[in-house]
Design a protein around this nucleic acid. Structure first.
Lengths: 225, 225
DNA sequence: ACCTGAACACCGTTCAAGT
DNA sequence: ACCTGAACACCGTTCAAGT
């Protein structure tokens, strides 16, 4: 009797999680248990042998994303943290569904914990006090996650694309908006011309923050690095 | 024949939106169409006379929140933007369900547009160029939304509360974590003692960013305000 | 040990019908 | 003009049963 379709590899937690991430990437949203099961050629309830429930599934997916983010390394804390921030943004671009879920885990996975430990290690060893390290980390992650949140909504890959999008959006408005929201229209017009480069914009804000954070380090240290 | 329960006020869009916000505040999540209808003593389908669909409902709810955020006003752009940021955080604290939805509107409402226009007005009139005004706005909103996102997950009202929460979380871990994540444990221990004050933390990061942003202003201007 | 089938209590939304 | 009832195509998850 037609034994069970082409005899798939046995399911296990890792295979379930990786399939879930792949599906989420492709539809930019966490898949439902039912579509995930279908993708794996299995009945929905089969998944519950490998994940406790949907939240446990998301926990596992997010830890896979954390595993892709580079630790801050190198002698100079600033460039180390800079590269780490850029690596985080890139991971969030590859996995847009993860934005808004990364920092919301009640049960952080091992990759999550390792990453946070590595970031704190970088800051503490660069001379930041416990308090200022917390300030620095909090400010940087707020910025990174918030930027990713805004980027998620307007997924333009090139400045040209974003410029056009702004221009057509502007063209759709009734003529009254020019009088009601003059500054908004000005920005829209300028952005329509120049385009909006997310990668550049991200680094501008990031560098503003990093420069300020540098001031939090004990000033009696030598200015080297 | 029992006419229709206690003859409620007629439904209209505003009543629907306000009831939705009140329900969302109370369960810290956007209500389902069905529970919202029940709250209004009406069958789910009755709502569709007043909102096009669920997204239209959320659009309306978010615009009510934008209506609560103070415009940046005053002679000094920095204190104006500072107060505006604090007002935004407070609105997001009152309406945690709105975090992650504010900047995701494909159809921004009038309060949303008015607010963005007012913020850009403040920056442009303070002497920022079009480009630097965009940098400043982007960086600040990234920070504000990202901070609110992190705050949403750990809803402690007082530093003491957060200190206790950190301590119990730490106590639940197996002893091995101390060796695997020494820097993480150090921060947890310190935070357990000192507590974590969200309001203070928010302003520290905010001021870091504002100080850096000040450097983006044309330097040939007088340094006054 | 792992997977299945049927069922439960939910969703948002349609359509045609009532008043 | 506004509200209703029944239905459709979805959800996550339970329980008892199969192999």
């Amino acid at each position: 009797m037609a034994h069970q379709a082409p005899r798939r590899n046995r399911l296990n937690r890792d295979r379930v999680l990786r399939a879930a991430v792949a599906l989420a990437d492709q539809r930019s949203d966490v898949p439902t248990m039912r579509t995930l099961a279908q993708e794996l050629g299995v009945v929905p309830m089969a998944l519950y042998k490998h994940v406790a429930n949907k939240e446990d599934l998301v926990d596992g997916m997010i830890d896979l994303v954390f595993g892709e983010v580079a630790f801050p390394t190198g002698a100079d804390w600033k460039t180390a943290m800079r590269q780490r921030a850029i690596s985080m943004r890139q991971a969030l671009l590859r996995h847009r569904w993860a934005v808004g879920l990364m920092e919301a885990r009640m049960r952080p996975g091992p990759a999550d914990l390792r990453h946070h430990n590595a970031v704190l290690a970088c800051l503490r060893e660069a001379g930041f006090s416990f308090q200022t390290a917390v300030h620095a980390y909090s400010a940087l992650d707020s910025y990174i996650y918030g930027f990713a949140l805004q980027e998620k909504t307007f997924p333009f890959t090139t400045p040209e694309e974003s410029g056009e999008a702004v221009e057509t959006m502007l063209a759709m408005q009734p003529p009254s908006v020019a009088q009601e929201y003059p500054y908004l229209v000005e920005v829209a017009l300028e952005l329509g011309k120049s385009g909006y480069d997310y990668a550049v914009e991200f680094q501008v804000g990031l560098d503003l923050l990093l420069d300020s954070i540098d001031q939090l380090r004990p000033q009696w240290r030598s200015a080297a690095s």
